[in-house]
Amino acid sequence: MKGIIFRGLEELVVTSHDIAVWEKLLEKHAPADRVYVSAKNYPDEELFALAQEVAIVVDKPLPDVLRTFGEFLFTYLTHKHREILDQFDGFSSLIMSIDTVIHAEVAKLYHEPNLPEIRCERIDDSHILMFYCSKRKLCFCAEGLIHGAAEYYQMNVNIEHQKCMHQGAAECTLLLSFGEKKHG
């Protein structure tokens, strides 16, 4: 897993809790000299252990923690690479371009990014069917990222996780229903 994801988790823990909490997490689940750097690869197990521990600290189920992390990660990543978002004219355009644009941009920045396979089918103007496949099975984090994107574009999104790799499916199927947020 790329260091930038660990850095996102670090930022989440430090801002929402305390630096001491992050230190404790590191002491427990990472080598003594660990400092996460975006471009480096770190063991997947380290991220899973850290996320699991966060779930214990905040007393929430792991899927919820991963969703929260995904949503935070979207803001964290867009803050670092806002220029990538300039290529999209809205939520739907971004979702439809995850594989062709976002993952292509990631490949320019990081060597061997080991990205998940994501493909999307537009059903109509307010529905997209997304297929997610990764040996890491971080589909809940993907849900959070989608929520983060919806928030960025001032949209409401509902995700129906129709099939899940955690339940033995070969890939996750997510039905995204979305519409503009109503103000006032």
Binding site: V37, S38, A39, K108, L109, Y110, H111
Partner: peptide
């Protein structure tokens, strides 16, 4: 990291 990303 920003420098590294630009160079990459």
């Amino acid at each position: 990291e920003q420098i590294l990303e630009e160079k990459t």
